[in-house]
């Protein structure tokens, strides 16, 4: 009541008070972090060895590809779009990698081929979405079917990867102080994450991503390069999917048409649980990382328990997603 009186007395004072309060945009991320800490607390009380730092590191090891996917997906969702194709592109990437390696290509050529094809698919999708004003849902759905179909064109069988460089990468270990270790995949994922965060939060391209998500027509009238950004985010998502595909190929040492079925939904879930609004314009890449870790923690929880069926993963993710969407809705409604 007293604050509402001071509103009328001095608006500038109110502005100053507001300036000091923690920005509301960190609230969803803070909620995710709190939940993550809570789950770890519960886990370590219940199961022995749950609180081991290596368990945390393993979250990164097992979800490196999901983190890379999440980075691309965050860009797309921040513009208010969606990319359903990422799971299929991961599968296609494993297939291209496995088949070219089988055909005797050098690893570097394979990597370039995979990254280029994924990026091209993303760019194509972005062009269709922007210039033909096709709903991102539909355009990426089309690419999802296309990429999955192309997998079968390459082979219906699973193709093993035996190339020396890939196996070395897959079995490699990066030691950390204190006797802990991670895989090279984690290093790649963290580097991708860092670059993504830098672009999103420090560059004009990144800020324009937010502007487009806030109001595309305003961004256009402000003279910002909306076309570049809209095509750009799908290109980035395509590139990230291809990279995630390479990591997944290394993780499973195989290429298979049925890899990563439904993974696009995991990526979207991670982004949303990380506090990014599906309508675009609000969210942090850091949130996506915590979203990925939270999904990983649920899986760890269930594997530690041993008695719970794996369906509990889905049930908990579903519940969490629902809760987060409602929380976001409440937060944004208050803002209006």
């Amino acid at each position: 009541m007293t604050t509402s009186t001071s509103v009328t007395v001095s608006p500038t004072f109110l502005d100053r008070v507001r300036g000091y309060s923690p920005p509301r945009r960190y609230l969803p991320v803070a909620a995710t972090v709190a939940l993550l800490i809570g789950m770890f607390g519960a886990g370590s009380l219940r199961y022995q060895g749950f609180a081991d730092p290596q368990v945390v590191l393993n979250l990164f090891v097992d979800n490196a590809f999901l983190l890379v996917l999440g980075v691309g997906m965050t860009f797309v969702i921040l513009t208010g779009g969606i990319d359903l194709s990422v799971g299929s592109v991961v599968a296609l990437s494993t297939m291209i990698a496995a088949s070219t390696l089988q055909a005797g290509w050098p690893a570097i050529a394979t990597i370039i081929a995979v990254l280029v094809s994924g990026t091209l698919l993303g760019t194509l999708m972005g062009l269709v979405i922007h210039y033909f004003e096709v709903q991102p849902f539909i355009a990426s759905l089309a690419v999802m079917f296309l990429a999955r179909g192309l997998c079968y064109l390459i082979s219906v069988e699973s193709i093993p990867i035996r190339e020396a460089g890939f196996t070395a990468f897959a079995q490699g270990s990066v030691p950390l102080p204190g006797g802990y270790h991670v895989t090279p995949s984690v290093v790649v994922a963290v580097v991708v994450f860092a670059i993504g965060a830098w672009v999103l939060h420090m560059t004009r391209f990144g800020r324009t991503v937010y502007a487009v998500g806030g109001s595309e027509s305003s961004a256009h009238l402000m003279g910002l390069r909306v076309a570049l950004v809209k095509v750009g985010v799908y290109t980035i998502s395509g590139l990230c999917s291809a990279l995630a595909g390479l990591l997944f190929a290394a993780y499973t040492l195989s290429g298979y048409s049925l890899h990563a079925v439904g993974m696009e939904l995991d990526a979207i879930a991670a982004v949303v649980i990380g506090g990014t609004l599906l309508t675009g314009g609000r969210g942090l890449l850091l949130g996506t990382m915590f979203g990925v870790l939270l999904l990983g923690t649920i899986q760890t929880f269930i594997s530690f328990d041993g008695t719970l069926s794996s369906w509990w993963t889905k049930i908990s993710i579903g519940t969490l997603l629902l809760i987060f969407v409602v929380i976001q809705r409440l937060l944004t409604r208050r803002q209006n």
Binding site: R204, A211, S218, L224, G281
Partner: peptide, 19 residues
């Protein structure tokens, strides 16, 4: 025609912000 999700300064300078 501005973006309410960005800061005041970003809304004023986006597109020609200092680097």
């Amino acid at each position: 025609n501005l973006c309410t999700n960005l800061t005041v300064a970003e809304n004023m300078l986006l597109g020609r912000e200092p680097h």
